[in-house]
Write a protein that binds this DNA or RNA. Structure first.
Length: 555
RNA sequence: GGCGAGGUAGCUCAGUCGGUUAGAGCGCAGGCUUCAUAAGCCUGAAGUCGCGGGUUCGAGUCCCGCCCUCGCUACCA
């Protein structure tokens, strides 16, 4: 048994998440965790919302909502979206609500400082005296000092493409209040990433085995690593420890610094709730633990370079990531999913029409594993109708309804003299049988989903070949043997389904008359001739119903 | 501007260290079957692997140039 600590990138508590996030991070993480659990591994799954930062204070101020209330709302909103898709975590906390977070983040700051990885630097920034805040680049407008365009932003000029230094803007204005900001110097702490890279992390990255797309992403990153400021002049964030302020009171940790620490503080919180407050160390400081970060490609630099640097730089025996199965981006057919451009789906209407688990499955078959990929309603309808309804769902109903009608709804017996023949046919001649779990372990979720359907298809081929509807009249004993074998097969399919379609797998499990939770069963692997049957002849089947109703349209 | 990704059958995508007639699913065409959710099974058609050069015995796979699409550019996976 191996210990796996699985984290999913913390969603920002500043708006809804969408299928892009789900496909890139949370759904693969969920399938991974469910599969490992069935395989008997020790697994902990951590997530929660990232709740600090400028963007949150701005929007919360705009609508006049206190920050804690504002982020609580989005935390619930996001959590309920996960519930809808049956995506589960062992804990879903938040950086501002987690009691252990502030102390944990401050400890990081303290240790990194004591070990010489934090430097203090003085910079000049634009400051708005009306709003009493330093202005992040995008909140400044002005005239471009290169081309004279009056609509330059603080980061880029839309006309000439110049990368703007906000301090050089002609006639800068604060985008919030319209007043003119002033130059003001401020002192901040910087994380010395070049030093951390040279001492350890650079070599670690080079020696580590990464997913190909991850390696491609970080290769160039190492050449030019900047120090990054880890504090900000903000009102909403983890305060810099007072004893270390050294005349810079009022500073807060910059949100990117404290966010990944949330993985650790949420673990502490969970373990405290379970009454074992020291247990978190087993997860974070035991080299036997495999730390897996699920995230999108934009988060690769943080989780492959910055956060490992922080973990190592504390010299507190933290483990470093074992794998970072980052995905690319998932696009809506007409363009990017974007909350800011209103390119979202009406979720209530959507889920009224499409089964959440069917949607789960479609997304899994199109995950952006190797490159950006596309969500298409039309394709989804095809996948649901052909793959889930026609292949998998129909296999169950054609067998179980036939049994209900002709065999009194009980599992028919298999004649001993048919065992070899039936095993040979089902396990050898009806198509290739794969273990979806192997692909899940290797983060190939599309292949895993395809393998599940291929296995289901084997059952359909078997039924086609044995023709129990004809045998029933000519050789009822053989018909019974074939149907018995099909029931066994459906039982295996239900188990293979469980990580991908948890609720549907359970429904199928019950249709077979099986007891308990299918997710509690050990992972089935691949059936071996003569040793794969578990059902008892004569057992009563449940009520067969269509698992996946066909859906219309695609508009 | 910089960085990155991608352009392979009608559609969505695989193609590991360069190696025999380029793959899958869906869609499409033809046939078979009737237990089942107008579902199932079998067979088939379909690609000058963005364009032009180069390296090589051999390139979708490496190198150079060009065209096109898209993402990021420090608060959206």
């Amino acid at each position: 048994m191996t210990r796996y600590l699985v984290t999913s990138a913390l969603p920002y508590a500043n708006g809804p998440i969408h299928f892009g996030h789900v496909a890139g991070v949370y759904l693969p993480a969920d399938v991974y965790v469910r599969t490992l659990r069935m395989m008997g591994e020790e697994v902990l799954s951590i997530c929660g919302t990232d709740e600090y930062g400028v963007a949150i204070t701005l929007k919360a101020d705009q609508e006049g909502t206190p920050y804690p209330e504002y982020v609580k709302r989005w935390n619930h909103e996001i959590h309920s979206f996960f519930d809808r898709l049956h995506i589960e975590f062992d804990t879903f906390s938040g950086t501002s609500r987690c009691p252990q977070h502030e102390g944990t983040a401050q400890d990081f700051f303290r240790h990194l400082g004591a070990n010489g990885y934090l430097d203090k630097q003085e910079t000049t920034q634009l400051y708005c005296e009306t709003d009493e805040m330093f202005l992040a680049d995008r909140y400044v407008g002005g005239t471009c000092y290169v081309c004279g365009c009056e609509k330059a932003r603080g980061d880029e000029c839309p006309d000439c493409g110049t990368w703007i230094d906000p301090l050089r803007l002609i006639a800068p204005v604060c985008k919030q209040c319209g007043n003119t900001p002033v130059h003001r110097t401020t002192r901040h702490w910087y994380l010395n990433l070049p030093k951390l890279r040279d001492e350890h992390i650079g070599a670690w990255i080079n020696d580590h085995e990464w997913k190909p797309n991850v390696r491609a992403f970080i290769q160039n990153l190492l050449k030019d690593v900047p120090s990054r400021s880890v504090t900000r002049d903000l009102k909403w964030g983890v305060p810099v420890p007072e004893d270390l302020a050294e005349g810079e009171e009022g500073k807060r940790l910059y949100v990117w610094f404290d966010a990944p620490i949330g993985y650790i503080s949420f673990t502490k919180e969970l373990m405290a709730q379970r009454g074992t407050p020291d247990e978190w160390q087993r997860w974070w400081q035991d080299p036997e633990t495999r730390l897996v970060h699920f995230l999108g490609k934009d988060n690769i630099p943080f989780h492959c370079l910055v956060f490992p640097s922080m973990l190592w730089g504390t010299q507190q025996n933290y483990i470093l990531p074992w794998q970072v199965p980052a995905n690319e981006f998932y696009n809506l057919e007409a363009g990017k999913f974007s909350t800011s451009e209103g390119r979202t789906l009406d979720l209530d209407a959507f889920f009224a029409k499409y089964d959440p688990e069917a949607v789960r499955f479609y997304i899994l078959t199109t995950l952006p594993e190797t490159s950006d990929s596309t969500f298409s309603l039309e394709q989804m309808v095809l996948t649901i109708n052909s793959g889930l309804a026609g292949n998998l769902g129909n296999l169950a109903t054609r067998v179980l309804k036939f049994l209900a009608k002709n065999f009194d709804g009980i599992i028919p017996p298999i004649a001993p003299e048919h065992l070899d023949e039936m095993d040979h046919l089902m396990l050898g001649d009806c198509g290739e049988i794969g273990d979806p779990g192997i692909h899940v372990r290797e983060f190939r979720f599309r292949q895993a989903a395809a393998t599940l359907l291929a296995n289901s298809s084997v059952g359909n081929v078997f039924m086609q070949r044995t023709e129990p509807w004809a045998l029933r009249k000519t050789d009822p004993e053989r018909a019974a043997s074939a149907l018995n074998t099909l029931c066994e097969w459906i039982r295996w399919v239900a188990q293979w389904m469980a990580p991908f379609l948890p609720q549907k797998a359970q429904e199928l499990w019950e249709m077979l008359g099986c007891q308990g939770q299918v997710a509690q069963e050990p992972w089935p692997g691949i059936p071996q001739k003569g040793a794969w049957r578990r059902l008892e002849a004569g057992a009563r089947l449940g009520t067969p119903e269509a698992l996946f109703p066909r859906v219309e349209g695609g508009e």
